[in-house]
């Protein structure tokens, strides 16, 4: 049987994320951290009511059972960064592609907004700029925008990039110091901000990294693994509770 983290071995890095659902309390701090880090705009009321809000990282609740035996589980869902992404295959202009380090990249300035990638994504984690959302932000928001992340104009598709700008910074630093990237040097915003430390991030190709170790855990599973998309976001299932 295929290992949960996939057999695909490239020589370089292969960035991946592990989310321990047993530790996740559903607080939503990852969503907030992501929005601040990646300049994700708030949408106005009308757009919100039409369910057009953007949330690269989304804590999706799932309620099980019927009253009074009800239980709600939370599942934080970023872009799954598939090794075999259905969205990149259909892009007509090469605006979304799988980069050599396994991150599904998005070129905002080339995207024509046909939304075929959104229709093709089985996880529904790609978002569209229905209006010029940035323009509607309070001035203070734009003033304190993260200078490392470009603002998106209307009419383009965006999604989680595993905080790619952080990787660029880390790489620059490593190159200046003439060394390799150190394990744990490249982190993502949702991971940094998770109060219960449910999110792990690192190089799946490095056998000593924590994510590689956790990906081999018996609790590890990937969302819709049967589709063959080979996501690099790996979940650790909840243990049975006796309460």
């Amino acid at each position: 049987m295929e290992q949960p983290h996939g057999e695909k071995k490239s020589t370089g890095h292969r960035w991946g994320m592990v989310i321990d659902l047993d530790k996740c309390s559903g607080c939503g701090a990852c969503e907030v951290a992501c929005m601040v880090e990646n300049n994700i705009p708030f949408v106005e009321k009308g757009d919100y009511q039409r369910s057009r809000s953007i949330s690269w990282m989304k804590v999706v609740p799932e309620t099980e059972g019927t009253f009074p035996e009800v239980r709600t589980k939370f599942m934080p869902q970023p872009c799954m960064q598939c090794d075999n992404p259905p969205c990149t295959k259909v892009c007509p202009v090469h605006a979304t592609y799988l980069n050599p380090e396994g991150i599904v990249a998005q070129v905002y300035w080339r995207c024509i907004g046909c939304r075929l990638c959104m229709a093709a994504c089985p996880y529904t984690v790609k978002y569209f700029n229905w209006h010029n959302f940035q323009q509607a932000q309070p001035a203070a928001m734009t003033q304190y925008a993260n200078p490392d992340v470009s603002l998106r104009d209307k009419g383009v598709v965006e999604k989680c990039t595993f905080c790619h700008h952080r990787l660029m910074k880390v790489k620059d630093q490593a190159r200046l110091e003439n060394r390799e990237i150190r394990p744990g040097e490249y982190t993502v915003a949702c991971q940094d901000n998770c109060p219960s430390k449910a999110i792990f991030f690192g190089d799946l190709n490095d056998p000593h990294s924590e994510v590689a170790r956790l990906a081999d855990n018996l609790r590890a599973f990937r969302l819709m693994d049967e589709l063959g998309t080979q996501p690099k976001v790996i979940y650790l299932a909840e243990r049975k509770r006796h309460d």
């Binding site: 007509p92 605006a95 995207c111 024509i112 046909c114 075929l116 009419g155 383009v156």
Partner: peptide
Amino acid sequence: DLGRPDRMLNMIYYGRYQSPLL
């Protein structure tokens, strides 16, 4: 239906035949 009709010609500049739209 295009979000960015102004970039329509990208279909020719960057067009890739992997995509059914092409």
